[in-house]
């Protein structure tokens, strides 16, 4: 009897909901602790819970193609997996992951010869005269994107974490390995630079 050929396709994973629910009941800290003893299921649950935020953070820190962001997200969680035993429960796991992601991006930028100024996904402002409200908004966004891209890495990381992701200053400082004063100074500098960029375009 001949057997039909196999289609050779991957079907999406079908998770067993009740088992998944068991993982989802655990706190972030418990999941990270489980990672520390080698539980890959906990790592999967941690990924499920935080990957969107990590994707968002990394894409704000580094404008690059999707596959590179995928790699950085994976590196972030892998680094968290390896360092899980070192996690101290003084801060939130999310902030901890943000700190790892920020360091991952920083190392990636430093080790990368090519530094992209890829702003292709940001539409250039239309040259309208005089600009209406929507056009002015688009121009502001464009200037802000460029300014954010041109910020020194240390300032950009602090700005994105504290301002855009709203990580409390103490946690951000701990996650980034900075003193609170240093973090505050960098945040101030980042805001000033961005504000100047916006103001410069409106003059």
């Amino acid at each position: 009897m001949t057997r039909p050929e196999r289609a050779g396709q991957i079907v999406p994973l079908r998770r067993v909901e009740e088992r998944r629910a068991a993982s989802s009941d655990l706190s972030d800290e418990a999941l990270l602790a489980a990672c520390g003893v080698g539980d890959t299921a906990a790592l999967g649950a941690l990924f499920d819970r935080h990957h969107e935020a990590i994707y968002r953070l990394i894409s704000r820190l580094l404008r690059t193609d999707a596959s590179e962001i995928d790699d950085l997200v994976q590196q972030t969680f892998l680094a968290a997996w390896r360092a899980a035993k070192k996690f101290s429960s003084r801060g939130a796991v999310r902030s901890y992951l943000f700190g790892i992601a920020a360091n991952t991006v920083r190392h990636h930028i430093r080790s990368s010869v090519r530094r992209r100024a890829a702003l292709a996904d940001i539409p250039p402002p239309p040259a309208a005269h005089p600009p209406d409200a929507a056009t002015a908004r688009a121009q502001e966004l464009h200037r802000l994107a460029i300014a954010l891209e041109q910020l020194p890495d240390d300032l950009r990381i602090v700005y994105v974490m504290c301002e855009l992701e709203e990580v409390p200053g103490v946690e951000a400082a701990r996650a980034l390995g900075l003193r609170a004063g240093t973090l505050g100074r960098r945040l101030h500098e980042a805001r000033r630079a961005l504000r100047e960029a916006i103001e410069g375009g409106t003059r």
Partner: peptide
Amino acid sequence: LADLARELPTHAPDDTRREAVRSSLLAAAS
């Protein structure tokens, strides 16, 4: 300023990419 910056586009993976990254991550961890 922060509100404006949040309007900048961010990347969100589709289900297929997310599942691929997840699988790859777990493989690497294993």
